[in-house]
């Protein structure tokens, strides 16, 4: 079997012994008060999430020059750098462009049930939405599969207002 090497200093006990105990504790505990921040949704993000919250609809932004529709929408085209002013509604019917089956969580612990994660693209749209896929077993999911977003009943203007995508 492959050799397993220690890759975390936290697992080398003597190392801590050379430092004050406070330092070790500070590494392992969430400090109070901690480092917090906020991130601005911006004009396009505001529009995208307001439509999701109010109407459970996906919004795109169109670049007339490149004939590209951006999802998520934005106020400039990443190709020609023109400003985008035309918003459009995207039909809630997408396709799995690629996916993976995740077996570990953010902390690195193994999940009891794997999670399916996918980039969902929409017809005629440049971009898409990265989200979970449910109501299908990991063995049956395929690239090219048609899926639609399942919205929460009570929405607050977040990507989590989409519960997941499900096969159509």
């Amino acid at each position: 079997m492959p050799v397993e090497k220690v890759t975390q200093v936290s697992q080398t006990k003597p190392w801590y012994g050379a430092l004050s105990s406070k330092y070790g504790e500070a590494l392992l505990k969430t400090p109070e008060p901690g480092l917090y921040g906020q991130y601005t949704y911006g004009i396009a993000g505001e529009r995208f999430f307001r439509e999701i919250k109010d109407n459970a609809k996906i919004t795109g932004a169109k670049c007339q020059k490149c004939n590209l529709i951006y999802v998520p929408p934005r106020i400039y085209c990443e190709r020609c750098f023109e400003g985008l002013e035309e918003w459009c509604e995207i039909e809630n019917k997408g396709e799995i462009h690629t996916y993976t089956i995740g077996w570990v969580d953010l902390d690195g612990s193994r999940l009891e049930e794997p999670v399916i994660l996918a980039l969902v693209k929409f017809d005629g749209v440049y971009g898409g939405i990265v989200h979970k896929v449910e109501e299908i077993s990991a063995d049956n999911v395929k690239i090219g599969m048609k899926v639609s977003a399942v919205f929460k009943e009570k929405r607050e203007g977040s990507i989590l207002d989409i519960k997941y995508f499900k096969p159509i």
Binding site: T98, V104, V115, A118, I143, I159
Partner: peptide
């Protein structure tokens, strides 16, 4: 922070998705 991070998933999923598409 608004489109991806709220999913609260291990970011190495990106490599899995890329590998899958590349193989296909």
């Amino acid at each position: 922070p608004i489109y991806n991070k709220p999913l609260n998933i291990n970011p190495y999923f990106i490599a899995g998705m890329e590998m899958n598409r590349y193989l296909l």
